[in-house]
C-alpha cells in the first residue's frame, strides 16, 4: 500500500487492528526514554530484546544505521548516539 504523504502518524497507528498486549518495558538506564520514543514508531520495542543475543556494539551500530537509512527512521544524529550507547550497554548479548 502506498501511504499518502500527509497522513498524520497517529491516525496510521490507530489503523492497525491489533490487540496484542503491551511488551515488557525496556531496561532502566541512561538513554532509555530516547530509545523508547524513537524505536517504537514502526514496531514494538520487543525487536530490541529479541535481537540482543545476536548483537554487540558493532551489530547495533549497523542496525540503527539500517533503521535510519533503509527504513527512514527519523532519528537525529545525537539521538542515534544516545540509542547506540544505551543498546550497547543493555542489549549486547552476542557470545554471552
Amino acid at each position: 500500500m502506498s501511504v499518502p504523504r500527509a497522513l498524520p502518524l497517529l491516525a496510521l497507528c490507530i489503523a492497525a487492528p491489533l490487540r496484542a498486549a503491551e511488551p515488557p518495558p525496556l531496561r532502566e538506564g541512561p538513554g532509555r526514554e530516547v530509545t523508547q520514543t524513537n524505536c517504537a514508531v514502526c514496531h514494538s520495542v520487543e525487536y530490541i530484546p529479541m535481537n540482543a543475543p545476536a548483537m554487540d556494539r558493532v551489530g547495533w551500530q549497523k542496525s540503527v544505521q539500517k533503521m535510519r537509512e533503509r527504513f527512514g527512521a527519523p532519528l537525529s544524529e545525537a539521538d542515534a548516539q544516545v540509542v547506540l550507547d544505551y543498546l550497547s550497554v543493555n542489549y549486547a548479548g552476542k557470545g554471552g
Binding site: S2, R70, F71, G72, P74
Partner: peptide, 9 residues
C-alpha cells in the same frame, strides 16, 4: 503498509 512513508512498502 508502513507506519511512516519513508519506510519502503
Amino acid at each position: 503498509g508502513p507506519v511512516i512513508p519513508t519506510t519502503p512498502d
